[in-house]
Write a protein that binds this DNA or RNA. Structure first.
Length: 315
DNA sequence: CCGGGCCCCTGGATGC
DNA sequence: TGCATCCAGGGGCCCG
């Protein structure tokens, strides 16, 4: 296995460039999983709640993934919620009967900014690159959705009919940081499949919001090999894995996610996203394991995803 | 129904 | 220096 320059190969996505330019959220770089989306959500709440959308623009590019975005115009954002990696905003203020929601998935490279128009009418964010959608709000602010790789999705869904528009949201498992994520339910789901336990963590049905980076960190904390069959885990292992899911995600949210924010992001949060500094395995291939001090962090590729683990303390 | 593999996309890093 | 190739991984889709 070739040596990997671990930190440079990912490290939780620390590629945010300084683009601070006045009012607004800092851009959040990196692959957004539950902790990153939750951090974004918390920043958005005071800026979006109660705001009316007065105009909308979206990228006409054929690869852009938008659905019914035109229905946003005239609607009021009543709340900013989250399910797994999805931001879900109930919309009010319309004249039609349909119960509309704005559903946003950041994909791999999506990020959001909320910027104010200056009193002289100029827009400090006007020159931002890779803007795929823009929502003009009724308080002289604009929400911009940036997404270089176009894997993100922005949809308006009526009456929670997720099946056709956002199928993953329709089958999403319990929120890991809620009471709905029970050991019994988790155990039943794991016992039902011989798939590698990492695949089960990633597929969103057993538990919502875990992506590749946190799956590796969770399995390391639980001392489980990523390729271990899910149905071979005994109760003690399952409880440990459940605890690891909750513990890692909790700590990552507390750290502001695995991102490096620019100066503005730090200012708004009071602290920057720093969980990448706590990563024990992800992006650390070739380093000695900081948990056991004995093993070396290995890396393999399954399903096109990098997988990182310690050959000594994960069995 | 399942599990595995490959595809979408594009900027940055790497290789020649 | 410059061009080509590789790599990253959300979710979707297809195939055995």
């Amino acid at each position: 296995m070739p040596a990997v320059a671990g930190r440079a190969s990912g490290g939780g996505g620390t590629t945010g460039r300084h683009e601070g330019n006045g009012a607004g959220l800092g851009s959040l770089a990196g692959v957004p999983e539950l902790p990153e989306v939750e951090s974004v959500r918390r920043q958005l709440v005071p800026r979006l709640t109660g705001r009316r959308i007065v105009a909308v623009w979206w990228d006409p590019h054929p690869h852009a993934r938008f659905h019914a975005v035109e229905r946003l115009v005239g609607r009021r954002i009543d709340a900013v919620g989250r399910r797994g990696k999805f931001l879900v905003c109930p919309l009010g203020g319309g004249t039609e009967d349909a119960d509309l929601e704005l559903v946003l998935h950041l994909g791999m490279t999506g990020s959001l900014r909320v910027g104010a128009t200056c009193p002289d009418g100029t827009d400090p964010d006007a020159g931002l690159s890779h803007v795929r959608a823009r929502l003009d709000l009724d308080d002289a602010h604009t929400l911009r959705f940036r997404d270089p790789r176009r894997f993100g999705r922005l949809s308006v869904v009526a009456d929670r009919a997720y099946e056709q528009v956002v199928p993953t949201l329709a089958i999403l498992g319990p929120e890991p940081l809620s009471a709905a994520f029970t050991v019994d339910g988790f155990a039943a789901g794991l016992a039902a499949t011989r798939a590698p336990v990492k695949a089960r963590l990633l597929d969103q049905r057993l538990v919502a919001g875990v992506g590749n980076i946190y799956a590796d960190e969770i399995l390391h904390r639980a001392r489980l090999r990523p390729d271990r069959s899910a149905d071979t885990l005994d109760r003690r292992r399952i409880v440990g894995l459940h605890d690891a899911v909750v513990g890692v995600l909790d700590e990552a949210i507390a750290a502001g996610g695995s991102t490096l924010g620019d100066a503005q992001y730090v200012d708004l949060m009071g602290k920057g996203g720093s969980y990448q500094e706590e990563h024990r395995v992800y992006g650390r291939a070739g380093e000695r394991c900081s948990t056991c001090g004995v093993g070396w962090i290995r890396r393999s590729v399954t399903g096109g995803r990098g997988t990182h683990w310690c050959g000594v303390c994960q069995r």
